[in-house]
Amino acid sequence: MAFIELNNITKTFHAGEENYPALRDVSLAIQSGEFVAIMGPSGSGKSTLLSLIGGLSHATTGTVTVDGIDLGQLGPNKLSDFRREYLGFVFQSFYLVPYLTAVENVMLPLAIQPGMNGRAQGVAREALQKVGLDAKAHRLPSQLSGGEQERVAIARAIVNRPPVILADEPTGNLDTKTGDRVLDMLQELNREGRTIIMVTHSAENARRAARTIEIRDGQVV
């Protein structure tokens, strides 16, 4: 059994009387430690696929399992625990909390981690060091460049050492050079053994991954 498995997944959105199928009968398997790019044009369903793997929404039909856990069987709080334990998210819009400094943003996942009392600051500084931002630990997001904000977001995604990193268009808001640096980091995290699933619409970015899954009109092609 693969580390991540999607079996006959469909996801339909409803707007009034209308149904919009975002994913249609998608099945795929991702092994532990893989670097997979999910590629496709806007509206193809790639971000929906990522949200299902991330336990942020449930499939309309079919099953999603991660490390043998059927996400469809988990309630909201169990899904939260699953995300905390298994996943690190990197978003296109960074989603840094504006009133927290870089290091406080990185510490966020540790605030609800049992047994982190007193150690959180050190662990967060380590993660910031890893992305080369330790010197700017006490700056607010508004005092950081886009690239630096993305690096803080990566530090936050890895601070509790999750086995899977989900990256949604991680270079979408960055210039080419900064974007390359972020992709280098994801590759490095993959080399350390983490499973990386990256959503992108750029073929060039997808080449950094070991495998590319292409999605069009809600189906794997």
């Binding site: 995300r83 819009s93 989603y95």
Partner: peptide, 16 residues
Amino acid sequence: VQEIGLFRAIGFRTGH
């Protein structure tokens, strides 16, 4: 809203 969504995404429970 986005901040709360982020908290949920990184594992905050309803109670948190």
